[in-house]
Write a protein that binds this DNA or RNA. Sequence first.
DNA 1: GCCGTTTTCGGCCCGACTGTTTTCAGTCG
Length: 576
Amino acid sequence: MQNKEIAEIFDTLADLLEIEGENPFKVRAYRQASRAIRSLYRPLEEMVRAGEDLTKLPKIGSRIAQKIEEIVRTGKLSKLEKLKSRIPESLLALLPIQGLGPKRIKMLYDALHIDTKEALLKAAKEHKISQIKGFGAKTEAQILEALTMRKQQGLRFLFCEAEPYADALTAYLQKAPTLRRVTIAGSYRRKKETVGDLDIVASATDPREVIDYFTKFEKSMHTVLAGDTRATIVLENGLQVDLRVVLEESWGSALHYFTGSKDHVIRLRQEAVEMGLKVNEYGIYRADKRITGESEEAVYRSFGLDLIPPELRENRGEIEAARNHTLPHLITPNDIQGDLHLHTHISDGEESLEAVARQAISLGYRYIAITEHSRSLPYTKGAKSDQLNRLFDEIETWNRDHDELYIFKGAEIEILQDGSLDIDEAVLDRLDLALGAIHTHFSLSKKSQTDRLLKAIHNPHINIIAHPTGRLIQERNAMEIDLETIYRASAQTNTILEINAQPKRLDLNEIQIKHAKQFGVKFSIASDAHSTAEMRYLKYGIHQARRGWLEKEDVINALPLKELKSTLKSVSSKGR
DNA sequence: GCCGTTTTCGGCCCGACTGTTTTCAGTCG
């Protein structure tokens, strides 16, 4: 039982209890516990087995600790099972529908026994919903419409999918009448790997004018709501966009509030209450007197905190660090000196060595590594030894003729099921840099998978473990691995862990990165590009690294060429 | 159900918008 699954049980419990009408604070306690569990480094299963005191964890008290123990022991939670016998679990599918919350779902169920989307659709079409007390024709129409929207399916967009729309909206809004400033806030500003919607904050002398202008955006399909200071539209691709417009004096407070995360903001508001202050999106107030709110710096300063970068605002220790002036100096794109995971048309890439090298130069890199797949993978068109040898000759020629960019002779070597490497010894000897990677057998037992990776980590030829957990966002779960063991072994052998920047991978994730760093692990942020265009993906890896609290010193491809070369040598002398 | 240098009881962030209310509940962020 993974932490994620335990967290899901508490989410389900919270949702069903809320529909049943349970005390909202109790419901929230379960949700907070769920979020806390998702942020944990260590598997709860392991902690329970070791008899550790779970109530030491934030948001976990004695009652929830007992429930976690029950879940780990039996795989189920009897309280939830009993609840399901009173309320059909299928009602949960109705919660994401815009405009439907727990109260109305309960009313629909009590009045018409609606317990599925299909039943809801049928009732709406037959105009039965508008006849229920508390519902009307507009609500019925709204439900019908919401049933066809993407958001109600609970789907999130990859950051890079939202990006072009974010850019287009920013450019569009900059021309809005009376506008002063505009910024995309929310999870997009925090650089999360996926975003549920776009939150935009603007300041203007006449907010209403900006709202009107916003709803006329050409890619808007539908206006969900539009008031004096707020509006919501849905774009052609189903992406929902919320705009909030404030006066210039509230810019900082509004930006802070709409950047979130929710946990971060609530935490600060709780502290505000203790300090006798009130915080809302318009400013910070003592009694009824407004103290500040014009900038984010000022907002944090009024709490005695340093400015916290958006990527860290998750209530995972950043507030304490800001108070102690120990926030990390996060790595920036300018720190990156090169990209250590790249493909050309020799394996499954699209372009030539020359094209990749030229692109690297235009990106300002000092070095790159070409890392073709080793032979065993049919779908990745693994390179044969003679092909690799010719490629390496070509690289050596390049390095002889060019000073501006150094190319490492690399390979992405398949780690076989037993942990051995799928590559010819002769090729191995010519490599400057070897990535070890897993592309098959994702569902081995935790023990076998961990042993498989450990063997590769201890292999003196392997410098970097590429996309260590194998997850694909919204497609494939991370492999079951004992990550602490992997971090410890990586640190001990100076084996680098990759932060793979492919938008669907972003592997390791931010929680794993932050945890691994505590073990002394070093990282490579790499694009894994299969075309020159994809080389720009590296920035998504930087997002992830920043969310994982990484500094320049944690990242080997922020090193100058000479130091990187000696670092790679020290890796291949591991275990000797 | 969690939490605690004012507390082991009594709090729990705060506000906008909509529809169906006849003064506000529900939903959302």
